[in-house]
């Protein structure tokens, strides 16, 4: 019996004519949707779309859209970080976004993408976790970041990342008082989540198709790609790398992708801040 996660994923097919048409465009340096190889689709963020969530955002990357929401509770800190708040990233994979998803616990892809987004955010130190302490060593804020893909037209992992970023940028932390029976959350008194804006990570995904590298692959491009490479940078450092897919990667392609991301990061950062904080 195959491991449960392999059998939970439907295999998707692309007709040969679609495949060949993607290949012939890419070999000429163009893509089916008219983009250049290293051109991203339009990124659009719609923050504060769920009033009951402490933070929320829809991210659209062309036709791909993802909703992220944040709920906050108070609990004991992790034993190894007694003076830091905590956060957890989870991504559901309901059949809403793609016919290849099924009902049930998150599939392998949902788990991988949630963990990649978590690493991009966590290792950049974007969230000031030391400011999320209610009572040192006893109570800290715990943020649950849950991601729901709405439409998978390719590159869900980046859409999930920007939805998370948008939600974090607009999250409001409720005040907490310690009563006799433990902590009480005061929903009406809130303040913005404290963030290191200058360390804000920027994540992009590249895909290898034929001998070319394309940025922000569509759903069809993902099906014919050898591998996808998700990278995140913060200031001048690479903070997350994930090669996904069974293709082989050349060192020079990796280094070129890092350089490309570095060149684009400031522009994307400005776009994200403008669309969320105004």
């Amino acid at each position: 019996m195959a491991s449960e996660f392999l059998s939970s994923i439907h295999r998707e097919f692309l007709s040969n004519i679609e495949k060949e048409s993607i290949f012939s465009h890419i070999s000429r340096g163009k893509r089916l949707d008219g983009r250049d190889l290293l051109e991203m689709r339009k990124l659009e963020l719609i923050p504060n779309c769920i009033e009951k969530a402490e933070g929320s955002c829809i991210a659209k990357l062309g036709k791909t859209s993802v909703l992220a929401g944040i709920k906050i509770s108070v609990g004991p800190p992790y034993p190894d970080t007694p003076n830091q708040g905590a956060f957890v990233v989870n991504m559901e994979t309901m059949p809403i976004a793609s016919p290849s998803f099924e009902l049930g616990p998150p599939n392998e892809i949902g788990i991988e993408y949630a963990r990649v987004v978590d690493r991009s955010i966590r290792s950049s130190n974007f969230i000031k976790l030391e400011d999320l302490v209610v009572e040192p060593e006893k109570y800290v804020y715990v943020m649950f970041i849950d991601i729901y893909p709405i439409n998978d037209h390719g590159n869900l992992v980046d859409a999930a990342f920007y939805a998370t970023l948008g939600a974090l940028l607009t999250t409001r932390i409720p005040k907490v008082e310690i009563g006799d029976k433990g902590p009480v959350i005061l929903k009406n008194e809130t303040k913005p989540l404290s963030l290191n804006i200058e360390l804000m990570p920027i994540q992009l995904t590249y895909a290898k198709i034929l001998d070319k590298i394309v940025l922000d692959p569509t759903h069809q491009e993902e099906l014919v790609s050898g591998y996808k490479l998700t990278l995140a940078i913060s200031k001048n450092d690479l903070v997350a790398t994930q090669k996904s897919g069974a293709g082989v990667l050349d060192i020079d392609d990796f280094l070129a992708a890092v350089r490309d991301l570095k060149e684009r990061s400031n522009l994307i950062k400005d776009l994200v801040l403008k669309q969320t904080l105004g």
Binding site: R119, R122, S123, S124, L229, I233, S234, N236, D237, L238, V239, A240, T241, Q242, K243, A246, V248, L249, D250, I251, F254, L255, V258, R259, K262
Partner: peptide
């Protein structure tokens, strides 16, 4: 000389990657 797995999750200066 081809890479089949590559992951990272800490700060790495870009000029030291190579």
């Amino acid at each position: 000389r081809k890479i089949t797995l590559l992951q990272s999750d800490h700060r790495l200066p870009i000029d030291r990657l190579s």
